[in-house]
Amino acid sequence: METSTFNKLKQKAGNLLEPRLLQTGRVLDVRPWAPSTMIEIDLHLPFTNMEHWEQVPYIKFRVDPLTYRDYTPSGWDAETSTCTIFVDALHNGPGAKWARSLKVNDTVSYFKKICYTQHQPDQTSAIIALGDESSVGHLLALQKMVLPHTRFSGGIVMGNEDHRKQFHEFLWTPIEPVERRDVYGHHSLMQWVLKQKYSLENTIFYLTGNSTMVGQLRKLLKQQGYPSSQIKAQGFWS
C-alpha cells in the first residue's frame, strides 16, 4: 500500500514538473551494433542550440518517469539540429532499456538546458583520449573540437571483439580499440599507453568512462610521471 501511494505521488510530481523542464525531439534512425549491446541513435532536436559548443556537452534524456540519463552527442549539425548519441546497453538499466525500445519517429524528451563537462581541448601538441564503451560519444565529441585533427589520438577499451571491429569499420577516428583484459579496463589501457611512448611534455590525457577505470588510470598515469595538470578526468558511473 505504501509503495503504491509513493508511486502515485511520484507520478503526480512528474506530471507537474516535467512539462516545465523538458523539450521533445524525434528519433531519425536506430543502428544497433552486433551484438546489440551498443546502440547508435540519430536524433532531431529542433529546440536545441547546437552552435558554439566549446566544451564537451551532454544531454539529460528522460528514459522513464522521473528517471534521466546523460548522453553526449558524438557529433552535431547546427543547421539541421541533428545529432548522434551512443548508448552502452550491456547493462539492463533504465537507459539501456530505453535505448533498446526506440524506433524511428519515436518522440524523446530531454532537459531544455544543455550541460557541459570540463573537457575542452587545450592548446597543446598532443591530446590523448582514453575511455571505454560508455564514453564513445564523449570521445568522438572531443575529437570534433580538436583542430588541427592531427593533434588528436587515443584508445578505447572494449570487451567485445565484434564491437572493436565495427568501431574501426563504422567510425572515422584515430582512436584505437583496445581489448579489455581486466574487469574495469584501466590495466588494459595503461599497457596500451606505455606502448605508444608518449612524451612527458606537451601531452594531455582526457579520461572518460566508468569511475573505477578513470580513477585507477589517473593513478597509473601519475606513477609514470604525468602531473595532475596533464590529466583531465570525467567518470560516469561506479
Rank of each mutant, 00 (worst) to 15 (best):
K144A: 15
G137E: 11
R164L: 03
T3D: 13
T80L: 11
R218Q: 12
E18I: 03
T82Y: 01
V146W: 06
M38R: 01
I204H: 10
T72V: 07
E176P: 06
V63P: 01
T48R: 06
E79W: 11
E54H: 06
K112T: 12
I128M: 05
P19C: 13
P148F: 03
Y184A: 15
Y110H: 09
D106E: 05
T67K: 15
L207R: 02
I231D: 05
P148W: 02
V63T: 01
V30H: 02
P177Y: 04
G225I: 10
G95D: 01
I175Y: 03
E54W: 02
E176N: 10
I114N: 02
W192S: 10
Q118W: 05
Q223H: 14
M1E: 12
D88H: 11
R62Q: 10
K113E: 15
C83L: 07
V136P: 04
F170R: 05
S229M: 09
G25W: 00
R181K: 15
H186R: 08
V157D: 06
R31G: 00
L102W: 00
I59Y: 00
L17K: 14
T67V: 13
E133C: 10
I85M: 03
L90D: 02
H168F: 05
E54Q: 11
V136F: 09
T150W: 09
S135E: 06
K232R: 14
S4C: 12
F61C: 13
P65M: 14
L43G: 00
H44V: 03
K97A: 15
V104N: 02
T80Y: 05
R181Q: 15
K113A: 15
Q223C: 12
K8W: 12
Q216H: 14
G137Q: 10
K12V: 09
D162A: 12
G185Q: 12
D64V: 00
P177T: 02
K197I: 07
L21C: 05
N210Q: 09
E2L: 12
L28I: 07
L189T: 04
H149A: 15
R218E: 08
S125P: 07
C115Y: 07
I114A: 09
P19A: 15
T150N: 14
R31L: 08
P227F: 13
L171C: 09
A126L: 10
E2N: 13
F236C: 10
V30P: 00
T82I: 07
A99F: 01
K12M: 14
D106H: 00
M145L: 15
M158H: 01
E179C: 12
A129E: 06
L139M: 15
Q234A: 11
I128S: 04
R26H: 02
G131T: 01
D29L: 04
V104S: 04
P32D: 03
H119D: 07
F236Q: 07
L22T: 03
H52T: 09
K197G: 03
Q191W: 01
S228M: 09
H44C: 08
T150G: 05
H187A: 08
V193Q: 03
P148S: 08
T208F: 11
V56G: 14
V214K: 08
V157L: 11
H138M: 09
T208D: 12
R218W: 01
L45C: 08
H149W: 02
R180E: 10
E51P: 04
N49V: 10
E40P: 00
G14N: 12
M38V: 06
H44Y: 08
W98P: 06
S36Y: 00
